[in-house]
C-alpha cells in the first residue's frame, strides 16, 4: 500500500483518538511555519490530511492555514463545532449532542464500558458511527474472555434492536467486519504517517508520545521509514493468515508488547477474534431477521481465538 494519509498533530496536547494515552501536560503548539510546510509536503505527496486538535482553540492564523487545504478535523468534545471526528471525553449518551455525518470515538476500558452500557446504547441511537477504542488491551487476560464476550453480546443485541427499527448505525467493533473481505488496518507507517509539532515524522502519534527519539524523518530531511516492509500485511506472519479484518493491527501495541511491529500480542489477537466472532453472530441474527446485508460475505466459524495457536496449520 502506498502512503495516503498525513496526520498532523497541531499541539503536544492534541486529543488522543486511539489506543495510546497522551501524557503531555504542557501546551506546545506546532510552529506556524512547520504547519505550513507540513501541509505543502502533504500536498506534494498527494495525501489526505487529518488535523488533530487540542482542547484549546487555535489562533486565527492557524485556522486560516488549515482551511487552505481539503482535510479532516479530529477534535475533542467541546471543540467540535466543525469536526469530522469527535473524541468524546464525557459520553453520557443522553446528554451528548451529536451531528449528522460526524463520527464519534469513545476511549474506554472494559470496566468503564461495562458500567456505562446504557450510555453507549443511547449514543448508538443518535450517531451515524461510533468507534469504541479499548485502552486496556495489554491488561486483557484469558480469564476476561467471557466478560468481553458478554459486553460484545450486549452491544450486538442493541444493534439488532436498532437495525430492527431501520436505524443503520455503524459500530466499529461489530459492523466493520460485516463489510470487509480483506484486512482494513490502521496502516501506520504504511498508508499513514504522522507529523508532530517538532517537525518530525512518526509512524503514528503514539510513537511521538512514547518514543520521541524514534522519528522516521522530518520536514527538513524527508520521510525515511526503515524496514517499511515490516509494516505491510504481507510481512506480518500472523496477521497475513488472519481474517479478523476489523482489527486495527496496532503496530505501536505490537512493538510495545512483542517488541516487533509486525507481530501482535496474544491479547490483541484474542480481543479482535472475540469481536470477529460477535460480528459473525450479528450477521447471522440480522439474516435470520430478514435483513439484506449488501457486500457481506459469510463469516465462517473458527475454533481459535489467537491465530498464533493455529500456526502449525499455515506455516
Amino acid at each position: 500500500m502506498m502512503l495516503q494519509y498525513l496526520i498532523i498533530l497541531l499541539d503536544d496536547m492534541s486529543v488522543s483518538y486511539c489506543h495510546y494515552e497522551n501524557p503531555s501536560k504542557v501546551r506546545r503548539l506546532i510552529d506556524l511555519d512547520v504547519l505550513k510546510r507540513g501541509i505543502v509536503w502533504g500536498m506534494k505527496e498527494n495525501l489526505n490530511i487529518q488535523f488533530v486538535y487540542p482542547d484549546d482553540e487555535l489562533p486565527q492564523e492557524y485556522n486560516e492555514v488549515i482551511e487552505s487545504i481539503d482535510h479532516t478535523k479530529i477534535k475533542p468534545q467541546g471543540q467540535d463545532e466543525d469536526a469530522d471526528v469527535v473524541v468524546l471525553t464525557e459520553w453520557n449518551g443522553e446528554d451528548v449532542e451529536v451531528k449528522s455525518g460526524v463520527s464519534y470515538i469513545i476511549r474506554t476500558t472494559r470496566e468503564k464500558l461495562r458500567g456505562a452500557m446504557s450510555s453507549v446504547h443511547a449514543l448508538l441511537k443518535k450517531v451515524n458511527r461510533l468507534n469504541i477504542v479499548m485502552t486496556d488491551v495489554e491488561e486483557f487476560k484469558d480469564g476476561d474472555i467471557d466478560d468481553y464476550k458478554a459486553l460484545l453480546e450486549e452491544l450486538k443485541e442493541c444493534l439488532v434492536d436498532l437495525y430492527g427499527q431501520e436505524r443503520n448505525v455503524q459500530l466499529n467493533l461489530l459492523t466493520d467486519r460485516l463489510l470487509l473481505s480483506q484486512m482494513n488496518n490502521c496502516g501506520a507507517g504504511d498508508s499513514t504517517v504522522t507529523l508532530a509539532p517538532n517537525g518530525k515524522f512518526y509512524l503514528c502519534p503514539a510513537f511521538y508520545y512514547e518514543k520521541p527519539m524514534d522519528d522516521v524523518g522530518g520536514l527538513d530531511v524527508g520521510l525515511n521509514i526503515k524496514n517499511q516492509q515490516l509494516l505491510r500485511l504481507d510481512h506480518a506472519p500472523i496477521c497475513r493468515h488472519c481474517d479478523a479484518y476489523q482489527c486495527r493491527r496496532c503496530v505501536w501495541m505490537n512493538q510495545k508488547t512483542t517488541l516487533e511491529v509486525n507481530t501482535p500480542s496474544h491479547q490483541q489477537c484474542v480481543m479482535a477474534h472475540l469481536e470477529r466472532n460477535a460480528s459473525r453472530e450479528l450477521q447471522s441474527q440480522l439474516k435470520r431477521n430478514g435483513m439484506k446485508l449488501a457486500n457481506s460475505l459469510d463469516i465462517r466459524k473458527i475454533d481459535y481465538l489467537d491465530p498464533f495457536n493455529n500456526y502449525n496449520q499455515w506455516r
Binding site: 506472519p237 512483542t258 491479547q267 498464533f308
Partner: peptide, 15 residues
C-alpha cells in the same frame, strides 16, 4: 512473557 517469544516462533526465511 510469551508475547516476547511470538516474533521468534513465527520467523520464516522469506519474511
Amino acid at each position: 512473557d510469551s508475547n516476547k517469544l511470538r516474533p521468534f516462533l513465527t520467523l520464516d526465511r522469506t519474511t
